[in-house]
């Protein structure tokens, strides 16, 4: 008896260019490259007209203005059709009073889903799991979060992640556990003995040579 051939599952890699695509969406045909110059949150959900997804989409809609202030766009995806997306968008507005104004990809042939490793067969062989990709203005994948079908995402964490990545880029620093804007940031660790010895005299708040923090000027 021959073994059943399982489809190859490909996952993007942090720091790599996100695979480009052209996809039908609720706002026309979009390419990933249309987002060049802006940050993008590309996120998948299992299916339209399902409860956890509906709560997530309303939550994404709630933070959309906050994301736009951070030069960040939203692009949803599921393997449903454009007609299904439109019916769901209208239903959410009518029944829940929330307008979903960001585009949603209708990935019926799963082309985008496979490029981004969004289908995890142990969760569902046909639906996408709850993936979130943060893609920077140069189209590089900067962060990925995968949640199972049962668990809705946390929008505060998504905003925090964008803030952290943008702060890192702007100030060449890292951000510690549970960091939020305004908190001290981590100074990159020294790379040589000489730098390590100098580090303690550089005026940072150092617990030791490898763990030094500093406050950024307001608004940075």
């Amino acid at each position: 008896m021959s073994e059943v051939q399982k489809p190859e599952i490909r996952f993007p890699i942090l720091g790599q260019k996100a695979p480009d695509f052209e996809a039908l969406t609720t706002q026309g045909t979009l390419r990933l490259s249309d987002y060049k110059g802006t940050w993008l949150i590309l996120f998948s959900h299992p299916a339209d007209f399902t409860p956890v997804c509906t709560t997530e989409f309303m939550a994404f809609a709630k933070i959309y203005d906050d994301l736009k202030k951070r030069n960040t766009e939203l692009l949803g995806l599921s393997v449903d059709s454009v007609s299904s997306h439109i019916a769901w968008i209208k239903n959410v507005e009518e029944k829940m009073g929330v307008k979903l104004t960001f585009p949603i990809i209708a990935d019926l042939n799963k082309e985008v889903a496979h490029k981004f490793g969004m289908i995890h067969p142990e969760q569902s062989k046909t639906e996408t799991v709850r993936c979130t990709f943060v893609i920077d203005p140069e189209s590089k994948i900067r962060a990925m979060i995968y949640y199972p079908l049962t668990t809705g995402r946390n929008m505060n964490e998504i905003l925090r992640l964008i803030d952290a990545l943008q702060t890192t880029d702007k100030n060449k620093v890292a951000t510690p556990a549970n960091w939020k804007p305004g908190d001290p940031v981590v100074v990159p660790p020294p790379a040589t003995i000489e730098q390590a010895e100098a580090r303690l005299k550089e005026g940072y708040d150092c617990k030791d040579w490898y763990l030094c923090m500093k406050k950024l000027p307001e608004g940075q």
Binding site: G28, R31, T38, E73
Partner: peptide
Amino acid sequence: PLFRVRSGLR
């Protein structure tokens, strides 16, 4: 938004 302009121009 810029992404819609690019798509629209296409």
